[in-house]
Computed example of a mutant assay.
Amino acid sequence: MTHWIASSNRDNWKILEKKHVWGVPKRNRTLMQRVKPGDTILVYVRQEKEGDTILPSAITGAYEVVSEPYEDHSRLFVSPPRMGDEVFPFRMKVRPVTVFTELLEFKPLIPDLTFIKNKSMWTGHIRVAMREIPEEDYQLILKRAGVEA
């Protein structure tokens, strides 16, 4: 089993919550060939502005991959303006393992996450759609969220 951190915006996280589907952009086709049923995904949402409020980057919960990756070009997800007409066609079905009652703010985790090598330039480590993370980081995040793994 592999653990992943999946980068999203809040709109697409809400779609994942409702539809139990995760998708990645066309450019990530080869990445999806590495994802297998039984893998787990921690969903990371980027910092966003909502009115005058800054919503911090955070982890929303853990999900288990329950299908082989598949291709579907129907419009399901919200494409950020910088990504044009992206439909995130490489998808997989997921089931919630644990959805955090309160989102776990990401920045306080950075000093203790081993997959983030450059602590001052940490955003580059999660800029991709999905990134494999070690077991110890997965366990640390669940523990900080108050969840038993």
Rank of each mutant, 00 (worst) to 15 (best):
78 V>A: 07
63 Y>R: 01
60 T>M: 15
142 L>E: 05
61 G>L: 03
68 E>G: 01
4 W>H: 04
5 I>T: 04
7 S>F: 02
1 M>I: 08
83 M>Y: 10
12 N>V: 05
96 P>L: 03
64 E>V: 06
17 E>D: 14
26 K>R: 13
114 T>R: 14
39 D>I: 06
2 T>Q: 09
41 I>Y: 00
30 T>I: 11
108 P>M: 11
2 T>A: 13
49 K>N: 13
8 S>G: 04
22 W>Y: 15
95 R>A: 13
106 F>T: 01
99 V>P: 00
5 I>M: 10
17 E>H: 08
40 T>C: 10
139 Q>F: 13
120 S>N: 14
31 L>Y: 04
107 K>Q: 13
25 P>K: 15
49 K>R: 14
21 V>N: 01
28 N>K: 11
62 A>Q: 01
20 H>D: 05
32 M>Y: 07
105 E>I: 12
63 Y>G: 00
110 I>Q: 04
29 R>H: 09
148 E>A: 11
90 F>P: 00
132 E>F: 07
131 R>H: 10
137 D>I: 07
64 E>H: 04
13 W>Q: 03
77 F>C: 02
90 F>D: 00
85 D>I: 03
3 H>W: 11
90 F>E: 03
37 P>C: 09
40 T>L: 09
64 E>P: 00
39 D>R: 06
134 P>L: 08
112 D>E: 14
11 D>S: 12
36 K>W: 10
21 V>K: 03
72 D>T: 08
18 K>D: 15
38 G>L: 10
142 L>D: 00
147 V>F: 06
16 L>Q: 04
87 V>E: 03
35 V>Y: 01
57 S>K: 05
13 W>N: 02
42 L>K: 02
84 G>L: 07
123 T>H: 09
143 K>N: 14
25 P>L: 07
118 N>F: 06
131 R>K: 13
105 E>T: 13
102 E>L: 09
55 L>I: 15
121 M>V: 09
8 S>K: 03
99 V>Q: 10
81 P>D: 08
26 K>A: 10
90 F>N: 10
109 L>P: 05
97 V>A: 02
11 D>W: 02
52 D>H: 10
52 D>C: 03
2 T>I: 06
124 G>L: 15
100 F>T: 06
99 V>W: 01
75 R>D: 12
80 P>G: 06
59 I>V: 15
131 R>I: 14
47 Q>K: 13
62 A>R: 02
27 R>H: 08
72 D>N: 14
41 I>L: 15
4 W>P: 01
74 S>I: 05
67 S>T: 12
145 A>I: 06
140 L>R: 13
37 P>T: 08
99 V>K: 10
88 F>K: 00
3 H>P: 00
80 P>S: 08
74 S>W: 03
104 L>R: 02
67 S>I: 10
145 A>H: 07
20 H>L: 13
97 V>H: 02
20 H>E: 13
111 P>I: 09
127 R>V: 12
90 F>M: 04
49 K>P: 01
75 R>N: 09
123 T>Q: 12
30 T>M: 12
59 I>G: 01
68 E>S: 10
47 Q>G: 08
30 T>V: 10
144 R>V: 07
65 V>E: 00
3 H>I: 01
83 M>D: 11
42 L>G: 02
121 M>R: 15
28 N>C: 13
11 D>R: 08
114 T>W: 02
112 D>L: 11
44 Y>K: 03
66 V>M: 08
130 M>W: 02
31 L>M: 12
102 E>D: 15
46 R>D: 08
113 L>E: 04
83 M>P: 00
100 F>P: 03
13 W>F: 15
